[in-house]
Amino acid sequence: MTNAEDIIIVKNLIKHFPVRGGLMGKPTSWVHAVDDVSFTIKKGQTLGLVGESGCGKTTVGRLVLNLIKPTGGEVYFENKNIYDKKQCSEKEFRKCAQIIFQDAFSSFDIRKNVESIVGEPLVVHGLAGGKELKERVAELLRTVGLKPEIAREYPHTLSSGQKQCVGIARSLALKPKFIVGDEPISALDVSVRAQVLNLMRDLQEKFNLTYLFISHDIRVVQYLSNYIAVMYVGKMVEMAPTEEIFAHRLHPYTEALLTAVPIEDPRLRRPREILQGEVPSPVDPPPGCRFYPRCHYAMKRCKEEDPQLVEKAPGHFAACFADFHSSERII
């Protein structure tokens, strides 16, 4: 799996959160937020991580940035284990790996102006000060398409699109190589969305950035990603190049998820199979496939045994015992 090009390698990542209760506050059960997830991202490319709320996609994003510690598994950044302080110091790693949040505004200190918000990482890492800091901030603001004069303003005076761009400028301050975008487009209005999407693509090209793009919006993921990984209740169920997954699905959940997205063209209205039931709780999940209770293709084996993610076609991974295959084109 190791390849010189692979900038991020995730191996068997597990994160269980305790549910505390009882007299001594001992864990009574465990939320299996992320269960045995593995993937790699090549330098300069984008992996889109999709799934419904509570599927563990945000937890994966935080684990990959070492913002929380895993229960098990490893993450390698440029072949160094990020959880091993001897191999990868936390401060150095922070310079290389950054995050863009869904709601930039709530990640700002509202008493600080744009200049101190964008410049803060540079100050913390002792990389710039005084006049140089001002110049660097102005340059960063220009990079994200904002006027440098905005530096004197405070977050509440900015529009939603500007706030998101200020957030992106701050993420870029340390010249990172890898950025996790956790629903960076979702809170924006349609007319503003395109501006931020174009910006993220331009920046990727300009700085050869690698993205882990987390979103529930399959349209946006399709536009931005080279690969798509689908998660369901803590498990990765399918992973393939974007074009491939829109042409062929090898997991029934991916099929249900992608066909549930309404098509933005009234000429293409069609009857569709609707997935019944709801997402099960990730608290102490039963053995077997987690999609089993909602799956039309479920067999006896699916209830007892947990399917592993295997390469079913070149570069196309799926975790399903059934010989599921759908190649109806999804537009």
């Binding site: 939603s160 007319s191 395109a194 501006q195 536009y223 933005e264």
Partner: peptide, 21 residues
């Protein structure tokens, strides 16, 4: 607004932007 949505289908296409807010 219709264009920004429809254009998402084509990865090689740069999105048409409505400038400003």
């Amino acid at each position: 607004i219709v264009r920004t949505i429809m254009d998402l289908k084509d990865k090689n296409h740069r999105l048409e932007v409505i400038p400003g807010d």
